[in-house]
Simulated scan of single mutants.
Amino acid sequence: MSSVSEGRFPSSSVPLITPGPLRTTLRTDDGVRIEAVYEPCTADAGAAAETSFDSTAIVVAHGFTGSVDRPAVRRAAGVFAQRAAVITFSFRGHGGSGGRSTVGDREVLDLAAAVEWARALGHRRIVTVGFSMGGSVVLRHGALYTGRSTAGAEAGGVTEREGRMEAHADAVVAVSAPARWYYRGTAPMRRLHWVVTRPVGRVVGRYGFRTRIDRNDWNPVPLPPVEAAGLIAPAPLLIVHGDQDPYFPLDHPRMLADAAGDGAELWLERGMGHAENAADENLLTRIGDWAVAR
């Protein structure tokens, strides 16, 4: 899985703010076709006039083996749409998108294309919300696409160039995200590594989970999430994690929060499991409120 120099992305050719849901196909900087869905904010006009609903869009990045049409993703989008416009998409190798999953590496290009689409639709403020693998992607994206000139800066083997303003997020939310790569400390993560690294595992991923996985190793290794967390400020960062997460124990969110310092808020959710499947309506509502208020 090859890391990339992450910077410029083409915008999708779409009209400004659309009156209803819109499904389209985006093309990433490396040429992968990504399915995406735009949903306008469902708040009434009076509420929108009193808030930033009319200018904010939330871009949702799903977890590994998810897709734009999975029930948990659609549920999250429905809650978020009560507060802001929402863009959901399927990462490469997932759902109806092309390419193969690199399990968090080149997926940052998919997110950047979705963020640029949100700005092309007329939204001035973008908040990225990522779950599990998507959480690691929004952290890297937040670190590498700042809208500031950082040409030539080296970060974890990735050379950051000055990116277009359209590609950056104004706030970042990482839910159930790992702090470090190659973690195998829990049984679910050992099973996931078997799926990703073994030929028979990738067959299971393709036909059992509808996820097409790249066979190549990362080269170079992408910027680790814990390092990315320290590079996101001054953009606000929210880290959300369940105390019953079977994949990543609580040292992961605490490492992320420590790395971010004063630039992050940490929510440890009692009784919550892992990622979008475990995020109930109450939590999604609080995340949506945080997104439009920051």
Rank of each mutant, 00 (worst) to 15 (best):
S2N: 11
S3V: 13
S5P: 05
S13E: 14
L22H: 11
R23D: 15
T25W: 04
G31F: 11
I34N: 02
I34W: 01
I34T: 06
A36Y: 10
A49C: 06
I58C: 11
G66T: 07
R70W: 08
A72T: 12
V73H: 04
R74N: 09
R74Y: 00
I87E: 00
I87M: 07
T88S: 14
G93M: 00
G95E: 02
G99C: 06
G99V: 04
S101Q: 06
D110M: 07
A112H: 01
I126L: 13
F131A: 04
R140C: 10
Y145E: 09
T146N: 05
T146P: 03
T146S: 15
A153E: 15
G156M: 10
V158A: 10
T159G: 09
R164T: 10
E166N: 07
A171T: 07
G185E: 06
H193S: 11
V200I: 14
G205F: 03
Y207L: 13
W218A: 13
N219D: 15
N219S: 14
P222I: 08
V226Y: 12
A228E: 07
I232N: 07
Q244K: 14
M255C: 11
L256H: 03
A260H: 07
D262G: 14
E265F: 00
L266V: 08
R270E: 15
G271A: 03
G271H: 08
G273M: 11
H274P: 06
A278H: 02
A278D: 13
D280Q: 03
E281L: 05
T285H: 10
W290F: 11
